[in-house]
Amino acid sequence: MDVRLTVNGTSHRLDLDPRVTLLDALRERLGLTGTKKGCDQGQCGACTVLVDGQRVLSCFVLAATVRGKVETVEGLASEGDPLHPMQAAFIECDAFQCGYCTPGQIMSAIACIREGHAGDETEVREYMSGNLCRCAAYPKIVEAVLKAKPAIEARA
């Protein structure tokens, strides 16, 4: 099946089986391995990407059904900037240990702020509850989200 995806501002034309998930298309066909395959059942959030600014579990979405612009962790930093403010905040706050869940956490955190769900620690925890961290870095993740909030809101 002929599938067209716009990922991180670049248009791609792929010949895919209609059953291929967005996650597998990103990782296996486009080489964007920042998006992680965790549970492959939509329960852990490791595969979170943004489609038209909304967070999406890419293991749950068929690539052929995606019509919007896909943003992955690889596409976050602006030209000339080594890191997106959320990536920098995760480093500054030590918001990861093994790092496996970090790309999905970062993408969800950006959506959390953009959608107005980062008013306080309780709201961030609730909104980010779909992203699991086996290392239990949750307090530092919340700290990073709140630290990056002003810079991300300024970009909007």
Results as ranks from 00 to 15, higher is better:
51 V>H: 00
56 V>T: 02
31 G>V: 04
38 G>R: 03
37 K>Q: 11
77 A>E: 07
147 K>D: 08
41 Q>N: 14
113 I>V: 08
82 P>Q: 15
82 P>G: 12
28 E>A: 13
59 C>T: 01
33 T>R: 14
150 P>A: 12
107 M>T: 06
11 S>R: 15
96 F>N: 06
152 I>G: 04
100 Y>P: 12
74 E>A: 04
148 A>F: 03
58 S>W: 01
135 C>Y: 09
155 R>D: 11
79 E>G: 07
25 A>G: 02
47 C>R: 08
30 L>I: 11
140 K>M: 07
45 G>L: 08
152 I>T: 03
112 C>W: 02
79 E>R: 14
85 P>Q: 09
67 R>W: 00
38 G>I: 02
34 G>C: 12
98 C>F: 11
98 C>D: 12
88 A>I: 10
124 V>F: 05
117 H>E: 11
42 G>V: 04
145 V>A: 10
90 F>E: 03
37 K>H: 06
39 C>L: 09
156 A>D: 11
31 G>P: 06
109 A>Q: 00
102 T>V: 09
58 S>Q: 01
52 D>W: 00
60 F>Q: 08
130 G>W: 03
149 K>G: 02
25 A>T: 03
37 K>D: 06
46 A>S: 10
154 A>Q: 14
100 Y>D: 14
126 E>Q: 13
54 Q>R: 11
41 Q>F: 05
110 I>E: 08
58 S>G: 00
111 A>R: 05
44 C>Y: 03
7 V>Y: 13
5 L>Y: 14
73 V>M: 01
23 L>R: 12
133 C>V: 01
22 L>T: 12
23 L>G: 11
102 T>D: 09
97 Q>A: 12
50 L>T: 03
130 G>I: 06
19 R>V: 08
16 L>N: 10
27 R>H: 10
123 E>C: 03
115 E>R: 12
35 T>R: 13
24 D>R: 13
115 E>Q: 13
59 C>Y: 00
22 L>I: 11
130 G>D: 03
76 L>F: 02
156 A>F: 02
30 L>A: 14
114 R>Q: 14
49 V>D: 02
132 L>H: 09
40 D>E: 12
91 I>Q: 15
15 D>A: 13
62 L>N: 01
26 L>N: 10
103 P>F: 10
39 C>A: 12
107 M>C: 05
130 G>V: 06
151 A>Y: 05
156 A>W: 01
38 G>K: 05
76 L>Q: 08
152 I>R: 07
74 E>K: 06
43 Q>T: 10
89 A>Y: 10
38 G>F: 00
33 T>Y: 09
140 K>E: 07
65 T>F: 04
138 Y>E: 03
154 A>L: 11
65 T>I: 02
35 T>P: 12
81 D>N: 13
105 Q>K: 06
112 C>F: 02
35 T>F: 09
40 D>P: 05
92 E>M: 15
92 E>L: 15
154 A>H: 14
131 N>P: 05
110 I>M: 11
42 G>Q: 08
57 L>E: 01
38 G>A: 10
